[in-house]
Design a protein around this nucleic acid. Structure first.
Lengths: 208, 208
DNA sequence: AAATATACTTAACACTGTTAATAAAACTAA
DNA sequence: TTAGTTTTATTAACAGTGTTAAGTATATTT
């Protein structure tokens, strides 16, 4: 059935158009200016057509949130090549920070906005868990476990350790994205400061 | 001029009514359901009357954000009584976490929402800096400086240290508030986990 | 009591997400 | 090719949003 296949492809094409338009609006005009009508304008369809491809606005944001995780995964694809787990952890942290600051809108959807989680909550069946987030967190935990096995970090609860590390990098990036550093330090100082803090954190956490 | 004074007081009364109504709506129906019309309904005035007391919606949120900082300050009023700076730091961290989880809407306004910062940006004159946030951050830095002077924490850049600590606790609280732990661990486990992480963090940061 | 200043409301503009009903297009079967 | 069916897209509408301009009461002052 080549015809049904082609139709399926076209459907995905329009979904992609909608997602691209939404992201364009988000980046250029901010989250609160992403409206169904503006999306429809951009893709040159009527507003209600959007609802033929997405259940509601939250589902669009959920899909963008997933794309964000894919991009982040792509950025981390060379990580396994780093043998030393502590060095890998350092690189992971650096990647996280760089990703967040360079893709603030995606980061917002992945870790700050409520909308994607709302969409998840309304889903039934096997997709109702936060697969993308869970998987990223498991990656972090795996590397931390390696660090402890190798003795680079002295043994503690894996969950506590992982939460400490994630909390820290997320804290920095989210404060930056939501403008809490803007009135505290010059803009060009934010990234260097984070990288210094990352160095400090890894160094402190490392077994002496 | 007793009459002008009374009028001023009445003006403040209505401002307070508006702020209370806004907070009630925020807590009971969520941020996106705080609308000028609903506020007006609650205080039994017409929608446009709200604009006689606040420039716009952002200014309401800015004022609530300030109240949040006042509440947090109130919570911390006994901190200076703790002599040992490291113990004080630990208590500060605990207070921060408890405050954030117990007053999620205030915390949201203080450290996550864009609206209060937008209001700040549009202000001119001496109020255009983030006074509330700066002051809280200076408090943290003062205690950290004491820790380093006493040798409880080995000397490093004060700014880097402060950012590390703040980033961590903010990371945890904001991830919790925005539902990123909900699909990862049972709800009643979140606070204990944070407190364990706090212990771990202070212990790790402390000079051995 | 008249004039002025303050407080408040009504009406309107230009938006928003979303649904129901309807029209157009594409595909299927005779 | 034509008739019927399914898919795709649209128009119209509902119930809301922030905000401004203009008009109306209510107080205060002269």
């Amino acid at each position: 059935m080549g015809i049904a296949e082609r139709k399926e492809k076209q459907k995905l094409e329009i979904r992609k158009l909608i997602l691209e338009a939404s992201m364009k609006l988000f980046v250029e005009e901010g989250f609160e200016n992403v409206s169904i009508r503006k999306i429809a304008d951009l893709i040159e369809y009527s507003p209600t057509t959007v609802y033929l491809y997405f259940k509601d606005k939250d589902e669009i944001f959920y899909e963008l949130h997933n794309i964000g995780f894919l991009l982040f995964q792509e950025m981390n694809k060379d990580l396994p090549a780093i043998e030393d787990p502590l060095a890998r952890l350092h690189k992971m942290g650096g990647n996280y920070i760089h990703f967040g600051l360079a893709n603030q809108e995606y980061y917002d959807l992945m870790f700050i906005q409520r909308a994607p989680m709302e969409a998840l909550t309304q889903m039934k069946g096997p997709d109702c868990g936060w697969a993308a987030g869970d998987s990223a967190f498991e990656n972090l935990k795996a590397t931390l476990e390696e660090c402890m096995e190798k003795g680079s970090i002295s043994r503690t609860s894996l969950d506590v350790l992982a939460m400490t590390v994630w909390g820290m990098v997320h804290g920095w990036v989210s404060l930056a994205i939501r403008g809490r550093f803007e009135k505290m330090m010059p803009k060009e100082q934010i990234l260097p400061m984070m990288l210094l803090s990352l160095d400090f954190m890894i160094d402190t956490i490392a077994a002496k």
